[in-house]
Design a protein around this nucleic acid. Sequence first.
RNA 1: GCGAAAGUAGCUCAGCUGGUAGAGCGCGACCUUGCCAAGGUCGAGGUCGCGGGUUCGAACCCCGUCUUUCGCUCCA
Length: 496
Amino acid sequence: MRRFTKLSNLRIPITQSLIHKFTNNESIHLPPRHHQPRQRGQNGVELKNNLKNIWWKAMTQLNDNIVGVDAAIFMHPLTWKASGHVDGFNDPMIDNKDSKKRYRADQLLEGKAEVYANAGDEAKAQALLNETGRLLGNNDLEAVRELIIAEGIVCPISGTANWTEVRQFNLMFSTQVGSVADDASLIYLRPETAQGIFVNFLNVQKTGRMKIPFGIAQIGKAFRNEIVARQFTFRMREFEQMEMQFFVRPGSEMGWYEQWRDTRLAFHKAVGLPAEKLKFHIHEKLAHYANAAVDIEYQFPFGFREIEGIHSRTDFDLKNHQELSKKKQQYFDNDLDDNGKPYGNYIPYVVETSVGADRLFLAVFCNAFTKETTGEGPEAKERVYLKLHPALAPYKAAILPITKKDGLPEKGREIEKMLKSEFRVFYEDKDGIGKRYTRQDLIGTPFCIAVDHQTLEDNTATIRHRDTTEQERVHISELKAKIGYEVSEQRILEKI
RNA sequence: GCGAAAGUAGCUCAGCUGGUAGAGCGCGACCUUGCCAAGGUCGAGGUCGCGGGUUCGAACCCCGUCUUUCGCUCCA
């Protein structure tokens, strides 16, 4: 049973065996109708953790006005009522049996209303919209279907009115708290991490004596019951977000929006994604909460796709939380305006930056995969390696005694012991040295330290560089400093 | 959910008109080996996705089912 994505279909050139080393969706338990979310393997989790750490530091360490939280995954339905997810994440769908096409029932009716409006019959159009809203509000799906048929709406493909039942597709996962299943115990798994920040906004602001502008960062899983979860790790039902909500004075949001847009692009370049494969995609159609939105897209082998969204969310979320919770979400701004008076109380505006951790992981993984041909003619050889930024690599260095004899393994272990408290190293003394180099190339280890007989004599070893395969001989006392800087997160953070 | 294609070892695949499972790579042990996937010997690993049918006999033919991929619907 093939449980692994045929990556060739996605034009991802990475070999299956290498995919295995980083990610898998295999499970010993795979019941019918259960789509196993793709998981990270032993190397994938290291790469992803490294990306998460660098993002976290880029937020909370490089900015003295950004702090982190770790909010709940289970959240009260009111939270999602306030955010618009209970209403907006619920789509009534209807299929045409002849064309096999699926439509949103409300959009079919809205389309019909538009036809009336264009014909000059505004009253009829409005009446239809009102009726649609009333039926959907009552969740009377059978009546919605009858209305579609009564209005003579046909499928634009097949031209028939041979419709299926109307069904609700709720994109949120729900479950119950406690053992008695009634409405009061219903809770949702968060479909985005942002709301966890909003409901904690005042607490963080007051306890941290935060002054606007300031931000709250969070990394965590979110869950969406996607109809299709496809394209490798690109769209999943269980995914991880790295979000930062930046609270600003109303009216100043566009400046911050532009600043964060540029800062976030710099981040993606700093972790190694090339500028020519990154672009902004400005949203023409804005979500219900936003007054400006842009995606940072990366050119995956299957096309440009979003890896991060930067949204100016206005005061939509905080205002709704205030209304539903009856708790004031306002901030008192002591700064003086042009007239010399404090700005006073207001609900802050929010600029959001939201990275899909798994999408960034996939982008970095795809980008790192490198295939090179060395030599010419019959001498030509293909070399494959993962050109990860050293700070992102699962292992920072591999210690490889040139042979298994003459005390070289002991010397190698000595070096391993010296380095392993500083960064993650790999030790191996079996097989030919060339084979071991190649194995490390495949998982992106930037440095290989070869221990030879000269090491025993003068305590020097060679460092072999992954990208060039060139070697240099250094004293083992210098290894920590020499490799340490190269693999440090500092080198990435400096560029943001 | 609809449509199309596919499922044989960890990976890539072969397996003829039906006759009881193969290769390369990888993996493990040992020998040899001083630098970019070296060589040798031995070894582990598969109820051919699952269930049923046809047949003396099914990886192969038929039916069903599950899973995966692609396309569509959705995508805050």
